[in-house]
């Protein structure tokens, strides 16, 4: 299918993006790589009246270590992040997770900021950010707001972003502790049936609820995942337990 008609605005700065969001209201959507938004529009699951293209804003594609934090700009593309030596050496969890994000052609265009702002509960990166205790920096005409990843994801495709706010940067505290990442999918590049990102004693499950679910390593696994065409709820719960056991074994047998 084809996307319904919409107006298209290309902005050059974050300020212009926020101003356009404020002007056009909730019917406007930001367009970065478009690898989640455009399929949703082609399937007519989304029909924004205005697309604000932020893909050419300069200065949002940096990956840098700043004091004890790794900062990743919103417009860094998945493939760039996957090949980045700084990320690989400081946050190997992220490098491993990125291998599982879709396919090369999708990774080449999709952005880290877009992935997080889209807040797909089956996506790898939101869970990684929750496990890593990352901070998501958002910008609006009122300035910059810092939101803990755990509080950023508020529901199915829902985030703490206000209508005129834009996700600008994600910041990961360093050094990162021992990690684990695995997901179970029917085919390489498919969305996970169940996945788990672990950083230290923080276990973040994905594809088990409407947002990433954080559990401590020692806590009971009280998940109640939904069923769908890929797996029933009980099957998901079982697989989540399998991944948790694998993680605890890999990280030193704390069971």
């Amino acid at each position: 299918m084809k996307a319904p008609a919409f107006d298209y605005i290309r902005v050059a700065t974050v300020a212009e993006a926020c101003a356009a969001l404020g002007q056009h209201g909730p019917d406007a959507r930001l367009l970065a790589g478009g690898q989640s938004l455009l399929p949703a529009m082609n399937l007519r699951l989304a029909s924004p009246s205005v697309l604000i293209d932020i893909g050419r804003i300069q200065g949002l594609d940096g990956i840098e270590v700043h004091h004890d934090r790794l900062r990743i700009g919103a417009l860094v593309r998945h493939e760039t992040a996957l090949r980045d030596a700084t990320i690989a050496s400081h946050v190997p969890l992220l490098t491993e997770a990125l291998r599982h994000v879709a396919h090369p052609a999708i990774r080449a265009r999709g952005t880290i900021g877009g992935n997080l702002a889209h807040a797909d509960p089956a996506s790898e990166l939101p869970a990684c950010m929750v496990a890593l205790n990352a901070v998501i920096e958002v910008t609006s005409p009122r300035g910059t707001r810092r939101i803990a990843a755990e509080a950023f994801f508020t529901g199915l495709f829902q985030t703490a972003l206000q209508p005129d706010e834009m996700l600008a940067t994600v910041e990961i505290p360093l050094p990162t502790p021992a990690w684990f990442f695995q997901e179970i999918a029917r085919r390489s590049g498919d969305y996970a049936i169940v996945g788990l990102a672990v950083s230290g004693d923080r276990l973040a499950f994905f594809s088990v609820a409407d947002r990433p679910v954080l559990r401590q390593a020692t806590a009971a696994l009280d998940l109640d995942p939904p069923g769908d065409l890929q797996a029933t709820g009980p099957m998901r719960r079982h697989l989540a337990g399998v991944l948790r056991d694998r993680a605890l074994f890999a990280l030193g047998g704390r069971t």
Binding site: Y8, R10, L31, G34, Q35, L38, P39, N42, L51, D53, G55, E79, P104, A105, I106, A108, R109
Partner: peptide, 13 residues
């Protein structure tokens, strides 16, 4: 020079 899905790119992009 990089791979892309033509169905997931607007011509204006």
């Amino acid at each position: 020079g990089t791979l892309a899905r033509a169905c997931l790119v607007l011509t204006v992009q």
